[in-house]
C-alpha cells in the first residue's frame, strides 16, 4: 500500500522537527523535511514501534542542552524512548534506514556536515548493533520523509522528482 500525503482517520501524522526525535506505535505516521541533516528511522517490526530522529550535527562534544541535535546523543536517546514505549529491550530487534545529507550550496558547510553526519550515524548504529537496511543519502535537494509505523516503509519525496519508497 503506497503512503499518501493525507493520512486516514486512524493514521495520525507526527511531525519531527529539526534537532528533535519522536517515537510512535502503529498506526501512526511520522514525517520530517531534510536538507543537509540526516534522518534516522528505526523500526521494531514485531512490536510495530517506530522512531525518527532529525539529526543536525555529528557530535555533542559533551553538551546536553539539545540531545536531538547531535548523532551521539539523539540515537541512544531515541532507542531509550522506544524501549520505554515497548516496555522491553529492543536493540536486537531494531533495523535502521538513513536519509538526507544533501548539499545545495557549492562549497558550503553542508557538504562536509552531510558526510560527517552520515559517518557518525553509521558508526553509532554499528556500535549499538543496529543494522542499517536502507540508505538514501547525498544529492543536491531536500527530501520529505513519510514513515509508516504499520509497514516500516518510508516514502520519500524530492522537489520535482518521482516519489519512491524504501
Amino acid at each position: 500500500m503506497p503512503l499518501t500525503d493525507k493520512p486516514g482517520a486512524s493514521e495520525e501524522m507526527i511531525s519531527v522537527l529539526i534537532g528533535r526525535w519522536a517515537v510512535a506505535s502503529a498506526p501512526k505516521l511520522m514525517r520530517t523535511l531534510l536538507g543537509s541533516c540526516v534522518g534516522v528511522v528505526l523500526y521494531d517490526r514485531l512490536g510495530k514501534i517506530g522512531g525518527m530522529a532529525h539529526i543536525v550535527l555529528p557530535s555533542s562534544r559533551g553538551s546536553t542542552d539539545q540531545p536531538g541535535k547531535y548523532a551521539d546523543t539523539a540515537i541512544p536517546g531515541l532507542i531509550e524512548e522506544m524501549e520505554r514505549t515497548a516496555g522491553r529491550k529492543l536493540r536486537t530487534r531494531l533495523s535502521a534506514k538513513i536519509f538526507g545529507g544533501a548539499s545545495m550550496f557549492q562549497g558550503g558547510a553542508s557538504i562536509d556536515i552531510g558526510r560527517s553526519n552520515q559517518t557518525a550515524v553509521e558508526q553509532i548504529l554499528a556500535d549499538l548493533g543496529v543494522a542499517v537496511i536502507a540508505r538514501d543519502m547525498g544529492g543536491e535537494t531536500g527530501r520529505r520523509l513519510t514513515f509508516s509505523t504499520v509497514t516500516g516503509i518510508v516514502a520519500v519525496r524530492i522537489p520535482g522528482g518521482a516519489d519512491y519508497e524504501l
Binding site: S36, C37, G108, S110
Partner: peptide
C-alpha cells in the same frame, strides 16, 4: 535557481550557523 521545500532550503542555508550556535 532551486525548486525546494521551504524547510530544506532553510536547513541548507543555516547549517553554517548551526555548527557554531543554537
Amino acid at each position: 535557481f532551486r525548486h525546494e521545500f521551504a524547510a530544506s532550503l532553510l536547513e541548507f542555508a543555516l547549517m553554517d550557523q548551526a555548527i557554531r550556535s543554537d
